[in-house]
């Protein structure tokens, strides 16, 4: 088919941050599907909780302290996370490197406390369905946490190589910030479901 040039794209930039970048939308897509998975697991838990009048099924209350510490750590990590985002937008390699190291450490810290969360549930997964659902919810979020921390550490190492001086890499840092927000956000309802619903209910 015949063609006639009608537009010149040579002046366009080669990368963009946030919603300008396809990767941001891809990240959002994965958040949507993972969020649906979380919502359905939470829905299954609530379904069973409303089905049985004596929910908790005579199990002891979970000890909420390890979970509460994780929650506080996660919320606190949002501040450096967003400072890092600002530097990523400016493509400033020095502060981004420091920020990535900080965020890696702030990812590992809740994982360490998480180790103590499982015994603090005071029930095993095979005791009854209440125990099963607690382990499923905590297990889901732990998988989420481990994958994102692993991803953050790899990206941190990458930023210390010569590959770090690239607009695309700074965009990756921005997406990593975005995803960490999601990891923190999904934890809040799960925290309430695991530790506080059995107390209220």
């Amino acid at each position: 088919m015949n063609q006639r040039p009608a537009m010149d794209l040579s002046g366009l930039p080669t990368f963009g941050h946030g919603p300008r970048s396809p990767t941001w939308w891809g990240t959002l897509g994965f958040m949507a599907l993972e969020g649906t998975g979380f919502a359905l697991a939470a829905g299954a838990y609530l379904y069973l909780a409303t089905l049985w009048p004596n929910w908790r099924l005579s199990a002891p209350q979970p000890n909420h302290w390890p979970g509460t510490i994780v929650t506080l750590l996660l919320i606190a990590s949002l501040v450096p996370n967003h400072i890092l985002n600002g530097y990523a937008k400016q493509c400033a390699i020095g502060p981004v490197r420091i920020g990535m190291v900080v965020m890696s450490l702030l990812g590992i810290a809740p994982l360490v406390v998480r180790w103590f969360e499982f015994p603090a549930l005071n029930i095993y997964w095979d005791t009854n369905a209440y125990g099963s659902m607690l382990w499923v919810l905590l297990g889901l979020h732990t998988t989420h946490l481990i994958t994102d921390v692993g991803d953050t550490i790899v990206l941190t190492v990458l930023m210390f190589t010569h590959h770090g001086y690239s607009g695309r890499r700074f965009g990756d840092v921005g997406d990593n910030v975005f995803y960490w927000d999601f990891v923190v956000l999904t934890w809040i309802p799960i925290y309430l479901l695991i530790y506080w619903l059995p107390r209220w209910g």
């Binding site: 299954a44 379904y47 069973l48 089905l51 049985w52 929910w55 099924l57 997964w125 095979d126 005791t127 009854n128 369905a129 209440y130 125990g131 099963s132 659902m133 382990w135 499923v136």
Partner: peptide
Amino acid sequence: ILDRLVGTHIFNPAEGGDALL
């Protein structure tokens, strides 16, 4: 697969689960 493999009771009505779920 959790119910089958590691003994959770999510779909087991005898232990607080539910088959209709």
